[in-house]
Structure formats: C-alpha cells, structure tokens
C-alpha cells in the first residue's frame, strides 16, 4: 500500500520560507479556488496557508541551536481528523494515503481542526470550508508536467533539498531510506496518530579524534629515531624491531 509523505530534514532547513510561498502560490492558483488573505498590507494581516515555517531555539546560551521547523499536514496513517467529520468531507485516500478535504461537502463546522493535535487545518475565512495541505495532489499525478516536476510545490522550491517526497511504505524509496538510516521520527507520537510525514533530526558535525591518534603509539619505519624498544626478553610483535 502506498503512503505518500514528506520527509523534512531539520539539519539543512535554513528557514527561508521558500516552501511557504511556493505552496501558497501553487495552491491559491488551482481549480479549488484561492486561499484567501485579509489585510495583507495592513496592521493585522491574516490568511490561509497549508505550510508554515516556525523557528525554535534549543539549548541555553551560548550553547544554542536555531531550529527552523516547517509544519504542514502530516497525512497521518491513523488520522484523528477523518472519523470525526460528520459529512465525510474529510477523508484519507486508500490508493496513496493522502488526507484530503472535499471542499464541496465541507460544512465548515471546524470539528476536524479540533481533532487535529498538530493545528495544520485552517478554515478559509471567505469560502468557509476547512483547508489543508493536499501534497499537491493536482501536481504529482499531472501527466502534462515533465516527470521531474510531478512533485509538491514546496519540494520543488526548497533550495537546500530539506524536503524529500515519496512513498514511505516502499522500503527502497529515498524517503524510506532517509527515515531508516538518518533517524527519521514522527511528531507527538504519544497520540498514536502515526504521522506519515517524518522529520530528520539535527546532527552535529564533529570529528571524533581518539587520544592515540594524536600521540604516536608506534613507529614502524623508525622515523625520528623514537623506537619503542621492547626488552630483550620480550618477543617482538613486528618484523622490523631491531636491537
């Protein structure tokens, strides 16, 4: 069974918001209608977004790390937002695991947003229906697009390749390998939602140097004349020790 998902590498995300703007650009231009904004150039701007990039500071000064954290619908494998929907507008596709909202059935009761612990559903204040990330379902299957462009807009836009897209149930896919080999994890595992989107943790880049790598332990070629000389009674471990 296919489960499409994003894998987001927090180690390389630089918080540039390119995924936010490209997501908004693509999804406000589609057949499903615009993603409404209000007062975009005034004091209190607001709008509907599928994707937000937040910033967190981890640690105590001076040992701090700034973590940029892109957040969108995680397309849970056991999505709590779907069974609570009274109309069936909120559903999870069997064929690829994408959680979607049928904008023509949604009554705008907001109950699904209450039932999502991650706060990734946003109501459109003008169309009055619930909206959320579609994994660019109108891009990824579009036969008219070149094959390399059949990816979500945010993935295409990411300049550091922090966003990987693929089928996490296919063990050979790049996303499954990344989760497996680079410590991919899920958000709020305590609620049993099994998010399909995974995050790759920050990794500190450091060189591991053992003390014996700094101090010369032996000197088989007798450079600089410092030969570790065993005593005469001891057997020589190599063939070059001489006395």
């Amino acid at each position: 069974m296919t489960q499409l998902a994003l894998v987001i590498d927090l180690n390389v995300c630089v918080g540039c918001q390119a995924c936010v703007t490209s997501c908004k650009e693509w999804n406000t231009s589609g057949i499903a209608g615009y993603l409404s904004d209000d007062r975009p150039y005034d004091a209190d701007p607001t709008g509907t977004f599928f994707n937000r990039v937040q910033t967190f500071e981890v640690g105590e000064y001076p040992n701090t790390q700034t973590v940029h954290f892109p957040k969108s619908c995680l397309h849970c494998e056991d999505p709590p937002c779907v069974p609570v929907c009274p109309t069936g507008a909120s559903y999870k596709r069997a064929e690829d695991g994408i959680v979607l909202v049928d904008y023509d059935k949604c009554i705008g009761c907001k109950y699904c947003s209450w039932a999502c612990p991650y706060g990734v559903r946003e109501i459109d204040e003008h169309q009055k229906v619930m909206k959320k990330c579609t994994l660019c379902v109108d891009r990824i299957y579009d036969q008219k697009l070149p094959r390399e462009e059949r990816r979500p807009a945010c993935v295409m836009a990411c300049p550091t390749n922090a966003r990987l897209f693929g089928d996490i149930h296919d063990p050979d896919s790049a996303v499954a390998v990344a989760i497996r080999e680079r410590g991919g994890y899920q958000l709020m595992p305590e609620w049993g939602t099994h998010p399909a989107n995974h995050y790759l943790p920050r990794r500190r880049t450091e060189i591991v140097i053992q003390p014996d790598e700094l101090v010369r332990a032996d000197n088989p070629l007798k450079v600089d004349g410092k030969l570790p000389k065993p005593s005469l009674k001891e057997p020589a471990l190599d063939d070059v020790t001489s006395w």
Partner: peptide
C-alpha cells in the same frame, strides 16, 4: 502529555519558540 519537545521532536529540556511563521493572526 504533549510538550514542545514532543511537538517538534527535539529532546532538550530547554526549547523556546522564537517565531511562529507569521506576524499577524491566523485561524490557529
């Protein structure tokens, strides 16, 4: 049951948010 640590998956006792991604309000 949930904390900032489980919310973003960083196991460190001190995690503080410095930006939520937008300056105005949102549905959230």
């Amino acid at each position: 049951k949930s904390s900032l640590q489980t919310a973003i998956g960083v196991k460190h006792p001190r995690v503080v948010q410095t930006a939520q991604g937008f300056m105005g309000g949102s549905f959230n």
